[in-house]
Write a protein that binds this DNA or RNA. Sequence first.
DNA 1: ATCGGTGCAAATCCTTTGCATTTCC
DNA 2: GGAAATGCAAAGGATTTGCACCGAT
Lengths: 119, 119
Amino acid sequence: MKRNTVQKKTIRKYLQSVKTHPTAKQVYLEVRKTLPNISQGTVYRILKNFKAKGDIHEINSVTNRYDGDLKPHSHFICDKCNKIFDIFENNKINKHQCKFGKITSSQVYYHGVCNKCNK
Amino acid sequence: MKRNTVQKKTIRKYLQSVKTHPTAKQVYLEVRKTLPNISQGTVYRILKNFKAKGDIHEINSVTNRYDGDLKPHSHFICDKCNKIFDIFENNKINKHQCKFGKITSSQVYYHGVCNKCNK
DNA sequence: ATCGGTGCAAATCCTTTGCATTTCC
DNA sequence: GGAAATGCAAAGGATTTGCACCGAT
């Protein structure tokens, strides 16, 4: 992904102009207004590439996982092996002053590379 | 989902016994060792139900969304309208003392009901 | 001209759902 | 017995991928 194509420019420009946190589908539908022939596959490929380069963030990744442990805790996700570790230390997030609405729960995800994969 | 079936008991027991944050598929494969006839559909239905009741947590939900804004910030997700709001206030998470590995990034998700939906 | 990127369509993976059957209370 | 949950299989939605063609360098 070294070439700076119209498709990439358009998607980048769109993502930087917007505050709506669009899905891949929404990106596709919007960008298609400018580039009627762009395909969903291309949008997925470009988003994946941007994400890998760190040009954009992805909110929610990989497949859903389930946790039967209800004690409040965070997760450390190894981006290499996808293993998830529990972090029971307190994070001092202030749940009580949010102007957008009433917070009922919060989840913290830390991404990185675990000790094993880091060797 | 009022009845306490074998399927539910087995899935609940499994999730409480394990620290691996399994996917729905993994739950299915594991539980099938005890209940060879259980179907994936049932596993999905039961997990969804447990989650709704608050008996388990789901790590990562809904479809991936993308964010071109790289300034560090958190997200507030309205569980009614699924709208995502940006929170630029600092959360004081300590990135620098994690025993599992090296943290390269973190994401904080707040769930709740936004002001508009709360009316 | 080259070869990386795109468009298209098929394939794959994940999740949901309709319906007949089974099972719990 | 009757409502509710399950199993099955098909459908639906998201994402990936193979391949022939196109276009940026």
